[in-house]
């Protein structure tokens, strides 16, 4: 299985839409087999999606990502785990062992995104969902 993670300074790149480098790791029998880093073309998101899909990546773990890019990657058949952050080696180690838990590596505020996508929070402010009442 090929897993890709946009990489910056040994960590997950903060923004998938503008990430410059992609780490592609091949994993077999719960262990890392190989890894390479490729440059992501500095082009629009459709070209970037095409580039990633041409790498035959099965799974993409990334940081923040725009809705448009997320949709584009999904239609390219790439399984996506967005809104992650942290040290790349720790994430790969956890993923190889099947222990990539959302809570460990999810970006701050990441847990709110799922409820938020159903609509804006009740007071009309962007981004808080049910947590506004906290």
């Amino acid at each position: 299985m090929k897993v890709a993670i946009p990489i910056w300074d040994g960590r997950v790149s903060p923004v998938m839409d503008t990430a410059c480098h992609l780490l592609i790791v091949e994993i077999a029998d719960n262990a890392e087999v190989s890894r390479i880093i490729v440059n992501i073309p500095q082009a629009d998101i459709s070209d970037r999606a095409r580039f990633i899909s041409e790498k035959n990546v099965d799974f993409l773990i990334c940081g923040a990502i725009s809705k448009q890019f997320e949709r584009m990657l999904a239609t390219s058949g790439i399984k996506l785990r967005p809104w992650f952050h942290g040290d790349i080696d720790e994430i790969i180690a956890a993923y190889s062992k099947g222990m990539l838990q959302d809570d460990d590596f999810l970006l701050p505020g990441g847990g709110r995104r799922r409820c938020q996508r159903r609509g804006r929070c009740r007071d009309g402010r962007r981004g808080f969902g049910r947590h506004r009442n906290l």
């Binding site: 903060p14 923004v15 940081g63 923040a64 701050p108 505020g109 981004g127 808080f128």
Partner: peptide, 28 residues
């Protein structure tokens, strides 16, 4: 900053700014 980013202050404090801000210019 909470309103624009959609992230609560208590979640942001102590975090790396790029993990909270997610700006197009963070990386390069």
């Amino acid at each position: 900053a909470e309103e624009i980013t959609g992230i609560l202050r208590k979640d942001a404090i102590g975090q790396r700014c790029s993990d909270i801000f997610h700006a197009s210019i963070c990386e390069s």
